[in-house]
Design a protein around this nucleic acid. Structure first.
Lengths: 252, 252
DNA sequence: CGGGCATTTGAAATACATCAATGGGCGTGG
DNA sequence: CCACGCCCATTGATGTATTTCAAATGCCCG
């Protein structure tokens, strides 16, 4: 069953760090590569009409900011983004990293409650949020799918609170690497292979630490033989069991 | 519009700290005081049949534990509970405090992903989770309401991450007191009046700190004249503006 | 191959945790 | 109703994990 209507257009967003706005090049190519797999899942069986566009973002570009008018959401098709909340003085907490298949910007409110920016050059499918709430009332299936989606995010969020609030620096980094290894496996990478697209500073903002502390924790894990690194972005998991124990807090 | 069917029975849960199970005293009183206001909101217009029971929990009693089979959820009618996640070695992170009108235990999964215990003696309306997922498909209104509810929780969770991950001890306590003051106002208390039903240790587990640090932060806020206290549980907000600035991180 | 940014590493500072002891409030029981 | 005892909160002293400041190295990309 796949009765979603999809109109697709391509668009290049090069807004130089500002908020991405349509550049309306008039292209209306009817492509549909691997675009919107997750969105298909969510909207499948709903009978809802979706108008989508393929968009591209440069590295370290803002996708949208907290309190911006929420007009679109995105399913990432390539690259990595981070979803974060910031304080007036610049301190920020990254709530999650998002990559292929993940959705960002999906909200019921009329303004985004979080900011999103790219870490690497990224592509995404952009979908209008227009009347999402009305659509919900019309399609129980859609509402149910979205509820499942948000519920999963909530469980994730709760676990992250425990990580940030109650774990030591090494435990936090171990937990993070463990999760990244799991991600990798789901994406079909070689066992134990971890690719970190984000900087140490991003990881720090994700774990509630500083760049230096993250670096030291990784160095420590390397010295005790749990991981090995080649460059900053390529990590190999040598002792998965110990990493997991550390992550869970068993005083390794 | 109020077409919910409600069957009500009363029950006293005195399971001495263990997991609460039905004691089935056979009482089937058709009362309906202020029970389930929030639940009414959620299920109103859904046409869904609900079987509810009034239950009572002693102080510091477990309502349910993470990984317990999820059979019921609760709307609190009086008292205060805490919702938390725990690590094997006892470290715990309180995810939220819940009091009158709040719902705990609402999940789509078949096991709870969080634990709940009471802080004070509490009463609640207990509602079966049976076939919640099926009910969703049948009622778009219900699915939509639940989605809104979970979305609000998610926003809350994100804000809490920022608090725990990026704020100093004093800022965290200030943020907490600020939120409690807001709660109080919504509940119709006198301006600036704050009642803390939870212990310092609970607050610590909520903010990712220790009892002593929370105590010191509160003492500090008292010394600089932002709050005043009578006993540990009664706080009065003397300088709301400064508290808010501290909470938001403006280097007060 | 070179420039510049990110990472790593080191040393010093500090915020928070831990350990320890006292005091106070509340509930319980007489 | 009062007194007792216990638990919780507070306060102090010390320890330590993490931050901050600073510098050197390394690596990626043009």
């Amino acid at each position: 069953m796949n009765n979603i209507s999809i109109q697709t257009t391509n668009e290049y967003c090069a807004t130089g760090g500002g908020i991405s706005r349509s550049s309306f090049k008039g292209q209306t190519l009817q492509e549909s590569p691997d675009l919107g797999e997750k969105v298909r899942e969510l909207f499948d069986g709903s009978g809802v009409q979706l108008s989508t566009k393929n968009v591209t973002f440069a590295r370290r570009e803002t996708v949208f900011l907290e309190d911006d008018k929420a007009d679109c959401f995105y399913e990432i098709t390539s690259g990595t983004m981070c979803v974060f909340m910031a304080m007036a003085d610049g301190r920020r907490q990254i709530v999650r990293f998002a990559s292929k298949g993940d959705i960002v910007g999906l909200t019921l409110l009329d303004r985004y409650e979080l900011s999103v920016e790219t870490i690497t050059r990224s592509t995404a499918v952009r979908i209008r949020l227009t009347d999402l709430i009305e659509k919900l009332t019309m399609s129980p299936q859609l509402a149910k799918n979205l509820l499942t989606y948000v519920s999963e995010e909530l469980i994730d969020a709760h676990q992250k609170m425990l990580i940030i609030g109650r774990k030591t620096a090494t435990e936090r980094v171990a937990t993070f690497l463990w999760a990244m290894a799991q991600n990798g496996q789901r994406a079909g990478w070689r066992e134990g292979q971890i690719r970190l697209a984000m900087s140490r500073s991003d990881i720090a903002d994700f774990l509630g630490l500083t760049t230096e502390t993250v670096s030291r924790a990784i160095t420590h894990l390397r010295q005790v033989g749990i991981i090995s690194c080649v460059g900053a972005g390529r990590v190999f998991l040598k002792d998965a069991e110990s990493l997991k124990e550390l992550a869970l807090g068993f005083e390794a």
